[in-house]
C-alpha cells in the first residue's frame, strides 16, 4: 500500500484514461471531463512525490493547490465557451465547429 510506485501507477491509469477520452469523445463537455481526469492524475503524482521523496512536505501541497486553482479557471472559461458555441450551432459536437476550416 505505502509505496511510491502504487500511487504513480494509479496516477498513470487516470492520466491514460483522460488521454483516451480527449482523443475519442466528440462531446465537448465529455472532453472537459477527461481533461479534469488528467489534471487529477498529475495532482496525485505531485502529492505522492511530496509524501515519499521531497525535502519540504509543504511545497508539494502548495503546487497541488495551484493546479486546483488553474483547473477551476479552465473549467469556467471552457464551459462558457461551450455555452456560447451551443447557442450559435445548437450542438456541442466538436466536428460541427468547422467554420474556420480552410
Amino acid at each position: 500500500m505505502n509505496s511510491l510506485s502504487v500511487y504513480l501507477t494509479v496516477a498513470a491509469v487516470l492520466f491514460s484514461l483522460g488521454l483516451f477520452g480527449v482523443l475519442m469523445r466528440r462531446n465537448l463537455i465529455g472532453m472537459l471531463i477527461s481533461i479534469e481526469l488528467m489534471l487529477n492524475g498529475a495532482n496525485l503524482n505531485f502529492m505522492a512525490f511530496n509524501r515519499f521523496l521531497a525535502p519540504e512536505p509543504a511545497v508539494g501541497q502548495i503546487v497541488a493547490l495551484f493546479v486546483m486553482g488553474i483547473a477551476a479557471a479552465e473549467a469556467a472559461i471552457g464551459l462558457s465557451i461551450i455555452l456560447a458555441l451551443f447557442r450559435r450551432l445548437r450542438s456541442i459536437n466538436v466536428e460541427r465547429a468547422q467554420r474556420m476550416r480552410g
Binding site: S5, A12, S16, L53, A54, P55, P57, Q61
Partner: peptide, 28 residues
C-alpha cells in the same frame, strides 16, 4: 496511443530507483 503512454510512464516509474531527499522535513 493511450496504451503506449501508459506503458511508457509505468515503465519509467517502476524502473527508476527513487531516492528520498537527504534530509526531509516533517512539517505538514
Amino acid at each position: 496511443a493511450a496504451a503506449i503512454f501508459f506503458a511508457a510512464v509505468t515503465a519509467v516509474s517502476w524502473k527508476t530507483a527513487w531516492k528520498p531527499a537527504a534530509e526531509r522535513g516533517a512539517d505538514w
